[in-house]
């Protein structure tokens, strides 16, 4: 379970303190599929960074299984991200000088897996996303949709319980978008927790729960599906 208690995150810009996010209470159960929607600058990415243990709150606590995330050391938070969380980025963030296979091997390497294990696990993960014939292609040699599938394979290769996605369908054509959303659906059906930040209301409709962020404030919204429909 992920829980936010009285979390506030502020930034100082040009001498002015700006509140990017304030959340009195938010609880996300394990296995939930949550979509966060809201206009640009509403604090969606800040929320994702806070939940990923990468941005400490100015005030309040974030709990992961009743354990305060930011009371852990940086190294422990890195280990949590490596073993329990997976990030999906809007711009994929593949490492440009590595092949598709090598990109997917990076999390396995960080975990300390042996070379042959990395090869077999990463290859089978890429094959699952239909990229068995693109193992040795660099990101620049792949289409946008293929790049996002490589990024998805990299996210899922360590078997994370929690997937944090930042506009995962933002740059995709309809076919690739469907592949990504289907992958999220599959992950959800496997019992993984998904928190997806998106502008795409149709994509948000795949989630079982929708949150709306407005000027840093989070609220539940249950009628998104009908609006999108």
């Amino acid at each position: 379970m992920i829980r936010l208690e009285n979390v506030v995150r502020t930034y100082v810009r040009h001498g002015q303190t700006v509140t990017a996010l304030h959340c009195k209470h938010l609880k996300i159960e394990m296995g939930e599929y949550v979509a966060v929607i809201g206009p640009s600058g509403s604090g969606k990415t800040t929320l994702l960074s806070l939940l990923g243990g990468m941005l400490s709150p100015t005030a309040g606590q974030i709990y992961l299984d009743d354990c305060s995330l930011y009371e852990q050391s940086v190294a422990v938070r890195s280990a949590i991200r490596l073993s329990r969380m997976g990030f999906v980025f809007q711009t994929f963030n593949l490492i440009p000088y590595l092949t598709a296979l090598q990109n997917v091997q990076v999390p396995l390497s960080l975990k300390g897996d042996a070379r042959d294990v990395q090869d077999s696990v990463a290859t089978s993960m890429l094959c699952r996303f239909g990229l068995g014939d693109r193992l040795n292609h660099k990101p620049s040699e792949l289409s946008v949709g293929q790049q996002q599938r490589v990024a998805l394979a990299r996210t899922l290769v360590n078997g994370p319980q929690i997937i944090l996605a930042d506009e995962p369908t933002g740059n995709l054509d309809p076919a690739s978008r469907e592949v990504v959303l289907k992958a999220f659906d599959d992950c959800h059906s496997e019992g993984r927790t998904i928190l997806m930040v998106t502008h795409d209301l149709a994509a948000a409709a795949h989630a079982g729960r929708r949150l709306v962020l407005r000027e840093g404030s989070i609220s539940e919204q249950s009628d998104v599906i009908s609006e999108a429909a």
């Binding site: 991200r81 990030f87 999390p107």
Partner: peptide, 16 residues
């Protein structure tokens, strides 16, 4: 910067 951030998001420690 982005690549370093990505590595950290994936789970790389500052030591790495």
């Amino acid at each position: 910067r982005r690549e370093i951030g990505t590595l950290m998001a994936i789970g790389a420690t500052p030591g790495f």
